[in-house]
């Protein structure tokens, strides 16, 4: 008991208490500068009618789908290449490099590179005869751009997780497949991917929760715009709380987001049978 006391204290002070207080604040009108006033379910009723909230959820889902979809495919691809082609430590280090750069720095560097008038990417596009693309300014491009930047930053790290998972697959299965004359392509679909499932589920759950939390890239580049194209849910919560001092409403949205994430994670674990391995 005594040994876990510091951790417990930290958990209570920094997690349990703030969560409870946040839940309480979600039932109040709280401007931060004056005492919270209990207002029942008013914040939740407002949320149902708030088109910005629904837009923010929609935009966030669009981001998560593009981000996680592209990132997972690329990560598995890179992991396979690392596993089958090279054991070079240098290559592994290079692949992880983007992940070691701070989010905000990554976002700002890309923001400059993708500038429509003075950015290097549009200069290159110009050389091959493509008109400049307003990556951050066009409402159709903004979310794919933000998602792409974060794929670039995170895919190496995700690939390493998948790579670790690959190493848990026993060699004898592959030897058996080879003896039976299975092609590389077939082996991947029939053996590698099914046996990788528990690891992939873990990776998906973790990266998806992280992906829902997209905030910093938006905060330092588009700030929710153009129009409402990148007003993702965390950015909207932040705006409500810290620029509009609407803490009660922001807390209510944070709580709803928490519930959504819990349900999504549970569903993923259930549907993909995370606890069982096909190896048995």
């Amino acid at each position: 008991m005594i040994f876990i006391a510091p951790a417990t204290l930290g958990f209570v002070v920094f997690y349990i208490w703030p969560t409870l207080r946040g839940a309480y604040l979600s039932f109040t009108e709280y401007s931060l500068l004056s005492a919270p006033k209990f207002n029942g379910l008013a914040n939740y009723e407002r949320m149902v009618q708030d088109s910005f909230f629904w837009n923010a959820l929609g935009v966030t889902v669009e981001y998560v789908v593009i981000n996680i979809g592209v990132q997972t495919v690329l990560a598995v691809g890179i992991a396979m290449l690392m596993y089958r082609l090279t054991k070079s430590i240098t290559v592994r280090a290079v692949i992880l490099a983007p992940y070691l750069v701070a989010n905000v720095v990554v976002a700002l560097v890309w923001y400059w590179m993708l500038d429509v008038q003075v950015g290097i990417v549009n200069t290159f596009l110009g050389w091959v005869g493509i008109d400049p693309v307003a990556f951050f300014g066009d409402s159709h491009w903004a979310i794919p751009t933000v998602a792409g930047i974060n794929v670039w930053r995170h895919m190496g790290y995700t690939a390493l997780l998948v790579f670790a998972g690959l190493q848990t697959i026993p060699k004898y299965v592959y030897e058996a497949a080879e003896v039976d004359g299975s092609t590389e392509w077939k082996t991947f679909w029939r053996i590698t991917l099914p046996l990788l499932r528990p690891v992939l589920v873990m990776v998906l759950v973790v990266t998806m929760i992280g992906s829902f939390q997209i905030f910093d890239t938006v905060a330092v580049t588009t700030q929710g715009g153009p129009i409402n194209a990148t007003r993702v849910i965390y950015y909207y919560i932040y705006e409500r709380a810290f620029t509009r001092f609407d803490f009660g409403y922001a807390s209510a949205m944070a709580l709803v987001l928490f519930a959504i994430l819990a349900v999504v994670s549970l569903l993923q674990l259930r549907l993909l049978r995370a606890k069982e391995s096909d190896l048995a």
Binding site: V13, F14, Y15, W17, P18, T19, R21, G22, L25, N103, Q213, F215, D216, Y234, I237, Y238, A241, F247, A250, S251, A254, L257, F258
Partner: peptide, 17 residues
Amino acid sequence: MTLNRRTLLKAGLAALA
């Protein structure tokens, strides 16, 4: 960045600390 945690943390800290 986990905003809700930060938000809650600030709110919680304000009351506690």
